[in-house]
Structures are given as structure tokens and as C-alpha cells.
Design a protein around this nucleic acid. Sequence first.
DNA 1: ACGATATTCAACCAAATGGGTGAACAATTG
DNA 2: CAATTGTTCACCCATTTGGTTGAATATCGT
Lengths: 129, 129
Amino acid sequence: MGEQLQEQRLSEVLKAVSDATRRSILTTLVQEGPLRVTELAGRYDMSLNAISKHIKVLESAHLVTRRTIGRVHLIEADLDPVRAVDAWFGQLRSIWDLRLERLGEVIAKGVTRDERPVPDGNKDDPGPG
Amino acid sequence: MGEQLQEQRLSEVLKAVSDATRRSILTTLVQEGPLRVTELAGRYDMSLNAISKHIKVLESAHLVTRRTIGRVHLIEADLDPVRAVDAWFGQLRSIWDLRLERLGEVIAKGVTRDERPVPDGNKDDPGPG
DNA sequence: ACGATATTCAACCAAATGGGTGAACAATTG
DNA sequence: CAATTGTTCACCCATTTGGTTGAATATCGT
């Protein structure tokens, strides 16, 4: 159990970085280290509030963390959730390679498509229910 | 030039895979090879049209291609665009590591934060433009 | 205590998203 | 040609998104 939770989190992370502004914020933070909201906002042609919202999106995807010191909120990048993304893509690619490999064997043996074995489970998705 | 175009494509790909249903479709296609729209749709508790739309999203992100044979549309996964995603994450991580490394040196030398060299360019974003 | 600064909250808005339904279109089959 | 099958198109609908502005809240400096 709990795979859908993982799925959910993966969706959240991917959605968070699917926005160019948010990617840029993340890159900036990774490059320069923790920055204040205002400092960050100053670099974009966008209202402070807009940036504040973007930060919150990144925050709930756990791609950034916040350290509040007095009235200043220090925003810091955290690349940990990216590993889940890597894992997913990696798995996808390995399945892909496996299938190609198997397809190669099948062709070599001259087995027809209908006769070849069913590929085994992928334990991730809301999948083909 | 053309980095924003790359950015745009990256956004499209990430957004496409940020939906669990679409990720599942992609995984299924990778596992089982090209499938018809109806076949694909049959696996989800969702209308044929909904799946058709999801496929179109994946298609415009170039994550799947379509081969139309008569009235049948064969949908096939294409993991090529995933490389762009990997590249971005990879770059992000290497910047991250670089900064940590530099930070280590700085600490070792006892230089203050304000004195340390400015990190060099990241040539991707709509960035702190 | 007061004014300035840093940030969020709340409301609003236009546009995009994810879903549904019914009609249209294309190709295959009888 | 008529019926059936595979798929998209055109709408409709509720929700989310990305942005705005203005007010509220909290902290700092004087």
C-alpha cells in the first residue's frame, strides 16, 4: 500500500517544476543558496505575491524549505524529491530496454506477437485499473 | 538563441507527465508496445474521449507518436524527450554539487560569504531576467 | 509608540485543465 | 448501400492555475 501516495507526490513534484518560473527560482536557489522572498522576487518581472505563491507551490512539493528568521523568510532548495522523478524515469527506461531486448529474442526465434509472454507488472499507477 | 524554445518544450514534457493517468498510459505503452486508442481507453475508468485527449497531450509533448492505419490509430511511446528532462535535473544537481564543494573550500579558508566569487551563468531560464 | 519593511491572506479574474456527452467523420464489413 | 467500428470534434462544466491588487500581520529600527 501507499503507492498512490508516492504517485501523488510524484505528480506534485513534476507539476511544480513544469512551470518555467518555478524552475528558474529553483535553479537560482541551487546556484546561490538560500535567499529571501523579496530578493528572489526582485529578479522577476512579476509581483512579489506571484513569486510568494510560486514558492508555496515549490514548498508543498518539498523542493524548497523555509527558515523564518524574524520577518525574513529564507528559502532554500532541496533536491531530494528529484530522486523520485529520476527513479520513475529510470524505471520507465529500463522497462523500455527490457521490452526491446525481449522483442529482439522474439524476432530471432520467429515467434509471433500473440505467442510471446505477457510482460510483468508495473506497480506504480492508478494504472489500467 | 532558442533556449526559451527548449524551456517551452521542457515545460510541455514535464506538464504532460505530471498527470498520473498520462504517466500510466506512457508506462503501459512502454511495456506493451504500440496500442490502439480504444484498447488503451478500455483499461481506464474514463471515457474514450478523455483518454483520446490525454493521448493528444502526450503527442504534442512528443512522448508518443501516432501511426494511422485505416481507421485505427496506433499509439507508440517515444522516450526521447525524457532526455531533456534528465539533462535539466542533471544540470541542477551538478550546480548543486559544485556549490557545496565551493562552500566547503570557502569554509576551509575562512572567507566570509560576501567575499566569495559569484557563481557563473545558468543559460536556461526565463530566469532572473 | 510609530513608521518602514517583509511576507502572507483574501478576493478577484482570465485562461487552462480534466472530465463528460453527443455529433461528425472515416474506414471496414455485410 | 447500410450498419458498425474507431476516433476525433465541438460544446459544456467545474476546478485549478497563474497572475493581479489591497488589506492584514509581524518584525525591525528609531
